[in-house]
Write a protein that binds this DNA or RNA. Sequence first.
RNA 1: GCCCGGGUGGUGGAAUGGCAGACACGGCCGCCUUAAAAGCGGCUGCCCCAAAAGGCGUGCGGGUUCGAGACCCGCCCCGGGCACCA
Length: 935
Amino acid sequence: MVTMSETETPPFRYTAALAGEIELRWQAFWDANGTFHAPNPAGELADPDHPRAGAPKLHVQDMFPYPSGAGLHVGHPLGYIGTDCYTRYQRQAGFNVLHPMGFDAFGLPAEQYAVQTGTHPAVTTAANVERYRQQLRRLGLAYDDRRSFSTTDPDYYRWTQWIFLQVFNSWFDPSAGKARPIQELIESYESGARGPEWAGLSAVEKRQLIDDHRLAYMSEAPVNWCPGLGTVLSNEEVTPDGRSERGNFPVFKRSLKQWMMRITTYGDRLIEDLDTLDWPEPVKLMQRNWIGRSRGAHVDFPVASSTGVIKVFTTRPDTLFGATYMVLAPEHELVDSIVPAAWPQGTHAVWTGGADTPAAAVEKYRREAAEKTEEERTADGKVKTGVFTGAFAVNPVNGAEIPVFIADYVLAGYGTGAIMAVPGQDERDWAFAEVFELPIIRTVEAPEGFEGAFTGDGPAINSAWLDGKGVAEAKAAMIDWLEAEGKGKGATTYRLRDWLFSRQRYWGEPFPIVYDETGLPIALPDSMLPVVLPDTDDFSPRTFDPEDADTEPETPLSRIKEWVQVELDLGDGPKMYTRETNTMPQWAGSCWYELRYLDPHNESKLVDPANESYWMGPRADGDCGGVDLYVGGVEHAVLHLLYSRFWHKVLFDLGHVSSFEPFKKLFNQGYIQAYAFRDERGVIVPAEEVVERDGRWYHGDSVVNREYGKMGKSLKNVVTPDEMCEQYGADTFRVYEMAMGPLDVSRPWETRAVVGSQRFLQRAWRLVVDEETGATRVTDEPLDPKTRKVLHRIIAGVREDMEELRFNTAIAKLIELTNALTPQETVSREAVEPLVLMISPFAPHLAEELWGKLGHEGSLAYTAFPVADPAQLVADAITYPVQVNGKVRGRVEVSPETTEDEVRAAALAAVAEVLAGKDPKKVIVVKGRLVSVVV
RNA sequence: GCCCGGGUGGUGGAAUGGCAGACACGGCCGCCUUAAAAGCGGCUGCCCCAAAAGGCGUGCGGGUUCGAGACCCGCCCCGGGCACCA
């Protein structure tokens, strides 16, 4: 049967087999001719003879993939196909289009995959990259492949290391609000401009002082330690429930000496420059929330019976009169020095935690806190815990002595790690005050009958000179008073913390840093880059019992002794140095890759300024510049997009780039979801074996339940682009992905619906090619006037849709045009050529083939996209629906020249029967639209 | 709890405040065929009905408007983000 149907398929039908043959041929053609090479203004990729040299530029990028061992499924290339259709259209519309693609290949998943398979990550990564290249190539994506790279290429990470050194060798000048070379700081110290102390410092002290100003610095601080992964993680890599984003292991706060980047100094600019970006509002909002700027004041509370001062940050200085106690984070540095030897007279029993002395109570509370994971600490509905330190502080506004507690609801890393507690106006403080029976003083008048902490606006009460003022006014007045009295100061704090930049991993960029006998870091000179990742078979990370917080990180590179110890001449003769053995986090390579595409082989510069300013430079005053369109998943809303903005701004400050944002416009594509099926035992069954009968789902004879979610191996519902190319051809697959819905909306994959896209392409093929003979069916006769109008209406609509990335509706219009031409015996070239050109962004191989059959030489990639003739967009006749009281009761057809009065008269005549002699109260004629009659 | 999105036929989805359901999948019918597939053509929101004609329809309840899927108010449900950040 199968062979019979195959033999009876017309010989020149556009089948999957024919599509495959056409696709391979055109992919080879594009490669051989460098069809999609984009000319640079300068350097080795410059090409003045290129058809788009000197044309307006368009720079489009995708978030490059992380090549996993599993290969691509049909969901992965959705955005890539979207940008490919868009850039193919814009190239035809006249732009010099840059659309590159690379691979993000350092990092945890590649390393874990290597450990699992027992193969070196360099080997598995190369294989995965190659597999991805093949899979993407098969889809006919029009990349300039001369610009492709992997972040693991030494030629690439040489520049990642170079940027690290730029960051290391700069400091943030708060008065200028920007990064400056560290040398300028050293000079200002040496000139004495920063005070006389410098001259008295030893050489080592001078280095330490300077190191403390660097944008990349080492610090001993509480960090996220993940024993299960054997590495520390950035805040961004820890989930809200205190687990690692990768692997879902518990994460513990531990004080460790690690590399940090001073991203916090850019907090204001990272917030404010969001206004210059054309990004989805939700993503901007997520960044604003992540940075979490809050304005308020620092207030000093002297410790009673001691010389210490507790500095707190508060957003509500207006409520100072309601501060009835204070809380320090358990790790706060002042705790030990304020704890008295014994409990003060009459200390409340619940305050002591059952300990005999304050020191014992503090010690016990700290120990318990350290053993808890973040998850336990922040568990919902948790009862507040804490313990009295035995010390009192003085409220600077009224001299009241208030008790000082430690409690884990105050975080060491935010603000000053200490708070004044105002239970009347803060829900957390209220909850704590209830547990510890602390006094509550309201300082804002709450509504009648209000229970609990009142956080809303209202007149101040119990607050002396602030009484009667609203919250905003009282805040300002209190800040003025604090500053005048020298007891505090207006201040801004951020939720954002400095970026933890080192990992205890093998598969990452080595730091271009060595240490001398002082233990202080020394930057290697640019001439020594790249610091190549040393080869080793012993690349596995040292991991631990995931629950065991009391473990020490160990870097795999430290095990390569002969690499760690190195003799170098750094200017004062050959000496032994110790290399930094941490590696950079996975984000490092993706923090700046958008720049390297511009000038991928430049050996003397990150990017030639001429190329950077052409592709990314600002186009007007206040324009941030950057990539014109950046497409990727919303999961990178904070991590990658925040880190890369930070690096870009540092490079901007140091004069290496002219744009101050990397990505001007961001578009989040949706996800392709899939159905998974579970039998009655709850076991997943292969989705491809499930059939639907009478609205139920069967696997064999048994009924199975359908679930909707991700596509994945474990859910047995993976569909690969390779299968789709095999069964339908790449063009059909592309059309289907673009036609199934708007690019930014997630939708379910339905293999059985793909055939609709194939039928469309088959019909389009048949317009040009006789399926029996292979002859061209097109005539040079002019198109009939009616179809001509359809053609131009559709050209206008498609252009509009393409500009707005509305590919689903663009394809619907192309299908409409194809269907309108299908019944015609022979089809006019006047219609077919524009149709082929308009199809080409979506089904480029098919379109190239048809373009050839229509008698054209070479590729259509640079052939102008059709433009609608405005004269053809005017309708011959307008049909007005006539509504009576909002319901359509008739219609009239009139010529476009008909006057409004004539339309009205015709409309009333058309619904005369419905009106039954009644006089209309009102008749509304909407020109070109409809007539509405009110009775 | 707070902040974003989103709810339209059996399904994916269309609709500058102006004829709801474009286009596609699926389904039904027809042509072609010995037959089937493919292809081509027709029908396909729901209810009533032989048909025509009606009636009802965009999560629910109100409102604005000649006219609301779209705008406003109040709910419900789904998805996502944030959540001891002082």
